[in-house]
Amino acid sequence: MPNVLRRPWLWAWLAAAATFAATLALGSGRGAGGLAYAALSFGAFAAIVGVGQMLVITLGPGNVDLSIPATMTLSATLALKAMDGAPDTVLLGLGVALLVGLGTGMANFALIFLLRLPPIIATLAASLVYQSLAIWSNRGLRVKPPQALAEFATGRTLEIPNVALVGLALSIGVWIVLERGVWGRWLLAAGQNPRAARLAGVPVERVRATAYLSVSVFAAVAGFLLASFSGGAALNMGAEYLLMSIAVVIIGGTSIAGGFSNVPGIWGAAFFMFLVVSMLNTYGAGAGARSVLTGVIIIGIVIAASSRRNHA
């Protein structure tokens, strides 16, 4: 079998390409360019949280961050409140968002490391607290992002959406660290066999801490960008990204058993997840049918990808 067929990211990209073609085949309104542009914009948010989630999932079974939606909402709410729509406060907002990400990441890891809670339950319980903080500080008001920030988030450079450029930059950074950096090797080693990694001198706890910090920071950045993109923070803005972040990681070919990660696949999967919905919209499916078909297609991709892996 040719080498390229064994690439785990291939299936996500093939699926994305197929849905892209199927949408265009019937899409009378938008052309290929418009659709690709929308996929890049909306896919970028899924890809940013997906890359973060991937780092955590790579740590091995049971490692997953369920606090991503709450972190996104909290960072967006606090950052927009700090900026208060005033010009020249973009850096302040970004700083607040990053601090929120670092804070929630440290809190998550403290629960996991100090209290030895299983990550699923630790991030779940902590996310309830973050959500309350967001509700409390938001109070239903909707602060608009500063003009310049909103223009950046919805704008484009060289015909590529700015949010996609930010997402790509972050992804490429993670990719380089994973493929070339020592930390990346440590992460994979810790995911494959934490005991062996520890005996080999890998600082496993430090690697885990960094992974949980990174996922929160990525979620905070995604929340910050999403709020700027959509003209304000909303309390439920992160909701769909819980399932989305896990789905793009797995569809993208990262092993749920840990120890193997795959950055290119995440982008393919993120495009795919957006394109499926727009394809079903084009075909005039109702909300119910759209949801059922999305589920069936996700499972189909997972089956296709896993049977291919088992043969390889």
Partner: peptide, 20 residues
């Protein structure tokens, strides 16, 4: 298959049927 993903995918199916 990873149960976490299959049940996640099925949650879309159940939710869609409920909407029907």
């Amino acid at each position: 298959l990873p149960a976490i993903v299959v049940t996640l995918g099925m949650s879309f199916v159940w939710g869609g049927l409920a909407l029907f």
